[in-house]
């Protein structure tokens, strides 16, 4: 093998995700005999990894004997699945009608400035993922933001500072 090809191979290896498949195998083991097991398996894998890594898709394809193309079809059909790593903290700001009239756009802008990421983006350190959402179903609390399962009502620009400061301190491990 020439040097150039050797180098190419090395970079390719690097770019390929290295994922510990133990957890994914455990999820598959759990649902292996269930009829119609693809959805729960993919959901279980996403719970474990925070997203559905490519090597797990190949693993699921092999162990469940489902075409990778079909799994990819399912993953891209449902909004609930993510193919790229997600932040430890998912910040969701409502931009529905009620929140919008209460100033949601400024809340969104402030998050963008503070986190240096845009809509549906994840910070490089994998701490944050930011998403604008249409309605969180609590219009009385407008403008509303959520960080993972915690709800923050009557949001202000100052509160954004406080939330970011707070979550910057929190540990990355679950």
């Amino acid at each position: 093998m020439s040097n150039a090809t050797a180098q190419n191979a090395a970079t390719e290896e690097k770019s390929e995700e290295v994922i510990d498949l133990t957890a994914a195998n455990a999820v598959i083991d759990k649902y292996l005999t269930l009829h119609g097991n693809l959805m729960p398996v993919l959901q279980g894998i996403q719970d474990e990894y925070g997203y559905v890594p490519k090597p797990t898709i190949d693993l699921v394809a092999e162990r469940l004997n489902v075409y990778p193309s079909q799994i990819f079809g399912v993953l891209t059909f449902y909004a609930q699945f993510h193919l790229k790593p997600r932040g430890r903290f998912i910040i969701r700001v409502c931009v529905g009608t009620a929140c919008h009239v209460q100033g949601a756009p400024r809340i969104v802008e402030t998050f963008f400035d503070k986190l240096h990421i845009g809509h549906a983006e994840t910070s490089a350190d994998l701490r944050y993922t930011f998403e604008k959402v249409a309605c969180l179903g609590a219009c009385g609390m407008a403008p509303l933001a959520m960080v993972n399962d915690a709800t923050y009502g009557a949001m202000t620009v100052q509160k954004v500072d406080a939330i970011v400061a707070d979550y910057n301190q929190r540990p990355m491990k679950k």
């Binding site: 898709i57 075409y67 990778p68 193309s69 079909q70 799994i71 990819f72 079809g73 891209t76 059909f77």
Partner: peptide
């Protein structure tokens, strides 16, 4: 397989 949804839907290969 069909991938994506609605107007974004298309026939594609894995990934």
């Amino acid at each position: 397989s069909f991938v994506n949804r609605g107007i974004e839907a298309k026939i594609s290969t894995p990934f």
